[in-house]
Amino acid sequence: MMQEYFAALVQVAAAAVVAGGALAASVILGKIGARSKAKDTPYECGLNPEGNSNPRFSVKFYLIAMLFILFDIEIVFLYPWAVVYADMVKESWVIFGSMALFQLILAVGFVYEFKKGALDWSR
């Protein structure tokens, strides 16, 4: 019965070999023991960074990005729906009605964010 999980075991073993191999290769090929001044710097083969790495962003970016993803995903769902049910929509109102209801709820959300000023950049 456990034989059907043999493939999973092989995958786990392969993952262990790849991860362990990468670590071992970096130890053997990368001369970890060898020390020099350049080796001890944080950016061994690059430039030292200028300034702070996490400057302050306006929180508006997150809000706009979140709303974009939200409505973007809904549009993405709309396309496969239109393609898959193209023929069925002609026969029955149920499928079209369900999508119309969904879009209506979405429209309420859009009006809500608009009225709340979430898209007003100058606020």
Partner: peptide, 10 residues
């Protein structure tokens, strides 16, 4: 719930 939301913003 939706009705209350609409009421709240309008």
């Amino acid at each position: 719930g939706i009705l209350l939301l609409l009421l709240e913003m309008l």
